[in-house]
Amino acid sequence: MLQLEAVEVCYGSFKALKGVSMQVGAGELVVLLGANGAGKTTLFNTISGLLKPTAGRVTLEGQRIDGLKPSRLVGAGVVQCAEGRKLFPQMSVQENLSLGAYLHRRDREGNRRNLREVYALFPILEQKKDEPAGSLSGGQQQMVAIGRALMSRPRLLMLDEPSLGLAPLVVNQMFEVITRINRSGTSVLLAEQNAFAALKIAHRAYVIEGGSLVMEGDQQAMLGNEAVRKAYIGA
């Protein structure tokens, strides 16, 4: 579905991505592991059109998409849920969710249906739909961020560090929801530092270090890899 071929991205003279080649198949849940500063967010921003590659190409179902505006990519089903949630704290939960449907604003019935699906996925959000998003707990705010992304009707959902700063119990719930989203047919690219929890739900994984992909493999291969375990799982 998504393919990157020898993608490079520079910030001035600094090369943030170095010849990255990877793919996400239709219906796959692929995890991108890496420490802070490894290049995960840069990679996501490049796929979603916020950054333009200095070399290489990005294709979606065979069609080249690097260089397209982010709004066009969202319309094509490439949706990013950014690290840090990026909510509008003074706006209500439902208003934040509705912003995710902006490109589909004329399809009111479809948006109402999608909103019901988001509330079915996160029942607590329906209870708090009229409360300011900034008043919610960290876990509930992350639910709003994911729900807003789902309102954009993603075919490929990119989640950047969704477990960051959350309590262990909430992390488990979050990964269960991500699994449900994937099983519904949405392809997922998940950037995570919580390697063990992420690999447990992944089909495949890549490891990025210093802007380069240094390892890849399926779930069992990565869970059983000693280097991965020492560097990311602490075992």
Rank of each mutant, 00 (worst) to 15 (best):
S135Y: 12
V207Y: 13
S48L: 05
L223T: 01
R148K: 14
N45D: 11
L33F: 00
V118W: 15
L156K: 05
R72L: 08
F88E: 08
L199Q: 06
T42S: 13
Q80K: 09
A55I: 00
H203F: 06
R108D: 03
D218C: 12
V188M: 07
G100C: 08
Q173Y: 14
K129F: 12
Q193F: 04
A149E: 02
V93Y: 10
L199A: 00
G84C: 06
Q220V: 10
D130R: 13
F44E: 12
L166P: 10
E161H: 06
E61W: 11
N111R: 08
R85N: 11
I47A: 04
Q127R: 15
S71G: 01
Y206H: 09
I65W: 06
E226R: 14
G75K: 00
I47T: 01
V74Y: 01
K40R: 07
R105W: 11
A101N: 03
S184M: 12
M91P: 15
S187N: 02
I47Y: 15
V228K: 13
G75I: 02
D218V: 09
M22Y: 01
A6Y: 09
I208P: 12
A120R: 15
A101K: 10
M143L: 11
G34T: 01
E109R: 05
L125V: 12
A38M: 04
A235S: 15
E192I: 14
A202Y: 06
F196H: 02
R180M: 14
R180D: 12
A35L: 11
E209R: 05
E5C: 03
R64H: 09
M91N: 14
A38Y: 01
V7K: 00
Q141N: 12
T46R: 07
V144L: 14
G134L: 11
V177E: 10
G84Y: 11
P123Y: 13
R183P: 02
V24L: 07
C10I: 05
G138E: 09
A235W: 15
A76I: 01
S152V: 04
D218N: 14
A16S: 13
H203D: 11
R204T: 08
G134R: 08
R155Q: 04
K129S: 07
S163C: 03
F44T: 10
A55N: 03
G84R: 05
R148D: 09
L60D: 00
E161M: 10
L213W: 00
R106C: 04
D107P: 01
R106M: 04
P89G: 15
K15P: 03
K128P: 13
G165K: 05
D130L: 10
T179E: 09
A120D: 15
G67F: 09
K52W: 14
P53T: 10
E95T: 13
A235K: 14
V214L: 13
V171K: 04
Y206E: 02
F14Q: 14
E83M: 10
L223H: 11
V9M: 04
T59G: 04
E216L: 05
A195P: 02
E61M: 08
G100M: 11
P53I: 00
G211T: 06
E8T: 04
A205M: 10
I233S: 06
R113Y: 02
A38R: 03
L51E: 09
R153F: 05
V93H: 08
A35T: 10
